[in-house]
Design a protein around this nucleic acid. Structure first.
Length: 285
DNA sequence: GCTCAGGTGGTTC
DNA sequence: GAACCACCTGAG
């Protein structure tokens, strides 16, 4: 069991930030996370509610997060996964003092972190995300895992399924996937799984490319355009200059940054700013 | 019935 | 290269 006290680390906020589709609340103060073939139970302990005065939803930022894993598992995997060796306060401190909108967004979502998730899992997840809503995406991933993943048990003897390997998915037919309600994305999943399984795209090689090259390489896969490639670059490859622009971000950009977003100023952390904006817009819209 | 949900790919001008 | 449009599905 590992306890983390961090001002900029909130599992509920990460859960709602839309970067991870296998993190769910199972009770008010307990979450379950599936990552690749791993499972993690997470407890949330609030600080004294009397400390919270404005009821703005920031309450969960200050408190303790309990990861139900060994110190060794934390050191070797989860610490990096949650990007906990990096100070997000430093990112927030870089925000333009005159940019009221971004300052508010960052304050509102200060518990968000950019996770370092599995590349293959993000590729499939964000192909499925197009023209789709979050609950349905989660359902499709669950279905795919149950059908093509491996059955496992948690320490509490609860059953879960690992994320399907490219090899396993490459053997599925388009019709099989359509029957699972993936719709027109079925063809993309088939094509992508085959290209990864037979080595036409190397996931390992993606890690060593810079942002522009990784993005271009990802876009060779069917069903992956600029937006989805940016999501994979940010949430899996940790390319912090990736700035996925979906319909919501596009509207915010038009409204608050008609002259263009200052990417130069936020070199190395534009993706974090995107997440603050996305989450703020999602919750405030 | 119609629109919309975190888009992509193909066609057209 | 910008502007269409089809594409599965389920919820409101």
């Amino acid at each position: 069991m590992v306890t983390i006290e961090n001002n900029c680390f909130s599992i509920p906020q990460i859960c709602e930030s839309g970067q991870c589709f296998r993190l769910d609340a199972v009770s008010e103060d307990t979450y379950e996370l599936l990552a690749g073939s791993r499972y993690l139970k997470i407890g949330i302990r609030q600080k004294d509610p009397a400390d919270e005065t404005d009821g703005s939803g920031k309450a969960d930022v200050h408190g303790e997060t309990i990861l139900y894993c060994t110190q060794e598992e934390y050191d070797s995997f989860w610490k990096e996964y949650f990007d906990l060796s990096v100070s997000y306060s430093d990112y927030i401190a870089r925000i333009d003092a005159d940019d009221d909108y971004l300052r508010s967004a960052a304050e509102f979502g200060r518990g968000i972190r950019i996770l370092r998730q599995d590349t293959w899992e993000m590729i499939i997840t964000f192909i499925l995300s197009q023209q789709n809503n979050i609950p349905r995406i989660k359902g499709l991933i669950r279905t795919l895992s149950e059908r093509y993943g491996r059955r496992r048990e948690t320490p509490d003897k609860r059953v879960y399924y690992t994320f399907p390997e490219a090899e396993a998915l490459s053997k599925a037919s388009e019709q099989e996937l359509r029957d699972l309600k993936l719709g027109y994305r079925s063809k993309y999943i088939c094509g992508t799984a085959q290209m990864v399984a037979d080595g036409r795209i190397s996931l390992e090689a993606l890690r060593s490319l810079d942002y522009a090259d990784a993005r271009a390489e990802l876009m060779r896969l069917p069903g992956i355009g600029g937006k989805v490639a940016d999501c994979i670059c940010l949430f899996a490859l940790h390319q912090m200059d990736a700035f996925p622009v979906d319909t919501h971000i596009k509207k915010v950009m038009e409204l608050h940054y008609p002259e263009g977003f200052p990417f130069e100023r936020y070199k190395g952390c534009a993706g974090v700013m995107q997440q603050y904006i996305f989450y703020y817009d999602l919750k405030y819209r």
